[in-house]
Computed example of a mutant assay.
Amino acid sequence: MPYTYRAKPVAMRPMSEMNITPLIDVLLVLLIMFIMVIPIATHALLVPLPNGPGDFETRAINTVRIDYADRLYWNGNELDRQQLLNQLADAAAMAEQPVIRFEPDALASYDRSAKTITLIKDSGVEKFAFVGNERYRAFGAE
């Protein structure tokens, strides 16, 4: 008797496709874990911006000074950080930019001096000079 092939019914055939349901389950669990682990951005970056015109006259040569008590001065006039930013924005916007001279006192804090230099740099002023450094050539000299 010759062999005859009979096709199996569809329900009895072995499954040849890959079952991806467990893969999707694992990926969803990983996604939820990553969402829970990533910290929420709670910090803010405060960028100082000028909020008006400068209060004092801008000359061809201007001096930004810091005294021993960390007070800021623009050509001898005391001001705060925001007022200095406004003055610097006015100076940077001029067609012929004036020279900004930075003159910290020997007892001025390094932090205040560094922040003031950064403020001057970020304001867009191109003509910048340090003044009075020759007084402090000998480290520790009074």
Results as ranks from 00 to 15, higher is better:
residue 35 I to T: 12
residue 101 R to H: 15
residue 45 L to G: 08
residue 28 L to Q: 09
residue 106 A to H: 08
residue 18 M to G: 14
residue 43 H to M: 12
residue 97 Q to D: 01
residue 22 P to A: 06
residue 13 R to A: 04
residue 77 N to L: 12
residue 113 S to H: 05
residue 83 Q to Y: 14
residue 109 S to I: 03
residue 100 I to V: 10
residue 20 I to N: 10
residue 65 R to V: 05
residue 106 A to N: 07
residue 31 L to Y: 13
residue 49 L to Q: 15
residue 15 M to Y: 14
residue 72 L to C: 04
residue 95 A to F: 09
residue 102 F to V: 04
residue 2 P to K: 15
residue 74 W to M: 03
residue 79 L to K: 06
residue 113 S to L: 04
residue 141 A to Q: 12
residue 112 R to Q: 09
residue 117 I to A: 02
residue 13 R to M: 04
residue 64 V to A: 01
residue 110 Y to L: 12
residue 32 I to W: 03
residue 51 N to K: 12
residue 62 N to F: 01
residue 72 L to T: 02
residue 28 L to K: 07
residue 89 A to Q: 00
residue 88 L to F: 02
residue 80 D to G: 07
residue 99 V to Y: 06
residue 40 I to H: 11
residue 123 S to K: 00
residue 125 V to A: 00
residue 40 I to R: 13
residue 15 M to Q: 14
residue 137 R to V: 14
residue 130 F to T: 04
residue 135 R to C: 11
residue 17 E to D: 11
residue 107 L to R: 03
residue 3 Y to T: 11
residue 24 I to W: 05
residue 96 E to Y: 02
residue 71 R to P: 00
residue 10 V to M: 08
residue 97 Q to W: 00
residue 70 D to F: 01
residue 11 A to W: 05
residue 111 D to P: 07
residue 114 A to R: 04
residue 86 N to L: 02
residue 82 Q to D: 10
residue 118 T to I: 06
residue 34 F to M: 15
residue 115 K to N: 03
residue 17 E to S: 13
residue 4 T to D: 10
residue 49 L to F: 13
residue 11 A to G: 05
residue 11 A to H: 05
residue 125 V to E: 01
residue 36 M to F: 14
residue 50 P to G: 03
residue 106 A to L: 07
residue 86 N to R: 01
residue 15 M to F: 13
residue 3 Y to R: 13
residue 76 G to L: 06
residue 108 A to C: 05
residue 63 T to C: 07
residue 22 P to G: 07
residue 31 L to A: 14
residue 73 Y to G: 03
residue 59 R to G: 09
residue 4 T to H: 11
residue 7 A to S: 01
residue 140 G to I: 07
residue 53 P to M: 01
